[in-house]
Structures are given as C-alpha cells and as structure tokens.
Design a protein around this nucleic acid. Sequence first.
RNA 1: GUGGGUAUGGCGCAGUUGGCUAGCGCGCCAGAUUGUGGCUCUGGAGGCCGAGGGUUCGAGUCCCUCUAUCCACC
Length: 376
Amino acid sequence: MYKVITTDGNAKRGELVTPHGNIQTPVFMNVGTVAAIKGAVSTEDLQTIGTQVQLSNTYHLHVRPGDKIVKQMGGLHKFMVWDKPILTDSGGFQVFSLAGLRKIKEEGVYFSSHVDGRKIFMGPEESMQIQSNLASTIAMAFDECPPSKAEKSYIQPSVDRTTRWLERCKNEMNRLNSMEDTINKKQMLFGINQGGIFEDIRIEHAKRISEMDLDGYAIGGLAVGESHDEMYRIIEATVPYLPQNKPTYLMGVGTPANILEAVERGVDFFDCVYPSRNGRHGHVYTNHGKLNLFNAKYETDSEPIESGCKCPACSKYSRAYIRHLLKAKEMLGMRFCVLHNLYFYNNMMDEIRTAISEHRFAEYKKAKLDGFNSEA
RNA sequence: GUGGGUAUGGCGCAGUUGGCUAGCGCGCCAGAUUGUGGCUCUGGAGGCCGAGGGUUCGAGUCCCUCUAUCCACC
C-alpha cells in the first residue's frame, strides 16, 4: 500500500508499506545485481550508509546460483541476510543489454548465458516464477527495453507485446502468491511503461497498464542513449498518465541531477549503477560535482573526498590514500568510493524528502544543481 | 681474459633481403560509462633507435671502433 504524505509542486513525499518494512519516498535503491553490492559492501555497511531498498536481478540470479537454490536457502532475504525491502528486476533489461545473445519471440526470449553459454528461455511466467522463488519484496514485470534509436515501427509492436506480457505477469504472480509453498505470498508487482521517445506511444501505454491495478508503475527504456532533454520531456509527458496513488519508478536513472529533475516531475523510485560502478572506477560524487580520484592532482591531497561527509571513507581517510589504493588496485579503494557514493545518494534522497516535507524543494534543487556545477 | 648474445619512449619488446611520419603491450595523463559481465571503450603525452665514425640517394636495419650488460668457458 502506498500513500502520499505531502506534495510540493509535482514532487511527492510518500511511503510504501511492505512486508519487509516501509519505504520512504523519494528513494534511491542501491543496486546489488547478484545479491551483492559490488565493492565488498556488506549488509552492515548498508545500515551505516542508510540503504532502504536493495535491487537484485532475476536473470543474473537465475544463471547463478539459480533461483531454486535461493528458494531452498529460504529466499533472498535470508540468503543475503537483509531483512529490509528488495526489488528484483525482471531480466527484461538483459534482453536489451545482452543483445546479440538473444532472440525475442511472442512467448518470451531465448538467451545464451553470459556465464557458461548455455541456452536459457525466459518469458513472463518464467520471470515471475524465478522472482517468486527469490521471494523479493517487489517483482518487476518482464518487458522489452528497446534501443533509444529504434523507429516507431519497431517500438509500437514491441510495446504491444510488453503489454501482453504484463497481463501474463499479473496472472502468473496472482497464481504464485496463492500457492502453498511460496515464501512471500504478498510479493508486489510493478508494471513497466515503454514507448521510446514517442510521447503518444508512452501515453497510450501508460493508460492501458494503469487499468491493471498493479502495486506500482515504472518508466523503463530511458537513459539508454537519448538526450537529457528528451528524457525529461518523456517523463513529464508520461507521469500524469500513471496512477497518482501508486509509486512511480524511473528505472536505471541516474546522475544526482537526473534524480532532482525527475523528482520534480513526480518520480518516487530510482536505481542506478552509477554510484557503485563509478565508485569502483574511482569517480566520486560531491556537492561540488564529480571527482576522478585517479587524477594526479589528488596524489598528495590530504582532504577527505568531501569535508563534512559522514560516510565511512570521509570520516577518516584522505583522497591521497584512497587514490593510492585505487592505483594499486586494492579492493579497499573501490570499497571506500562505493560506500561514499551510496552514502551520498542515500543522503541526498533524505535531503530531498525533508525539502518536500518543508515545501522548499524548488529552492533545494536549485542550490544543489548550482553546487554540482561549481568547482570543488 | 676468450668466445657468443643483447643494446629502440618509465618497463618489456616488434621492426621483414636498408625506404618510417620508428610501432606494440604494460605503465603514465585525461575522458566516456544511467533496470552492472570488478569490465570495456576513446583520446593524449613521452624515443635525435647505447656513443662515435664509415658505406649509400637514403641506415633502427650493413661495416669499424668504443661503452654497457648478459651467458658460457678459463
């Protein structure tokens, strides 16, 4: 159950009630694709850096260790020792990102495993079964995420198929939630809006899936190559046609600036690999823009990544030391950067929630963006 | 001391019977990365080819001397 606590313009401050605790929105979900946030980050770390929700991936966990193994181990929560909400992505994105290794048909998608090359079939039913085995808090619908440059003639039939897949997902999820040996019988299902950068297709699709009474609605297929302006335009056009009494999730986005823009347009949920992947590559976020700690200018910099930051890295360690660890390819260097970045994102979301509650989101956003564009 | 090998950007090497604007890997310096294959990709800086002399229209490539270094033998 989702409720909007207060609004500030189109920005919403809300709360999603789940069997694994309540999620305060807007929220940034921390991405742990294979039931682990890359960079040697533990559950204890996540508590320290204020993680509300973890995101894992259906396709990756199906390939390894196998969803049946996870079910046998008591489900994802018990397996990875995390009792707060988990959202599982459906594997739909892998249809897109592993393009070349797949064949899309009406019944579903034929993949070759990126781990051992074996053939895998996944359709809406399989994706729901896997996610039910994983017993995540929120399951995502199985969709196709077409490339940003796709023509309308490709997008329209693709979106129509995604709609048919969504109906199958919903039916299968209902069936699974009523089964005796299902671990999480209250597993939620979010539908996914597609339509490329065509507002008419987006809106039509949003209307159709809104009638299906799902637990939440995502906007997918953005931030895959189109410009920021196009992305914001599509968000702005689509959000009003998604149910306002349900959470809206912008999949895979994005930079801190992207998130501020999307919150302003009514988005509640986010996830992105940036803080973790960029962290592993030594790119760290600050209120004065992104730093690349590999840069030679940090060689003797005794300052923390960001002074005043309360993350585990900034509380004690210098940029120079972390740079050294990164150059030496020590895991600890990546770990510090990932922890800092996730803390930065989680903390920014906390600030956003406070700003909306106090009806000063616009001022907050402007000040934040000005900071990002200033030199540290 | 004798015989043989090797000397090319920070390191490791390619450079065909002499025609180069001297390449490559790593490293270095930067930049990309948006529902993650601890990747990958894209740029950039840096060498009078150990030193000196010779042959030639032309030498990193051939010849001579020297220096350094490695291996074997004494």
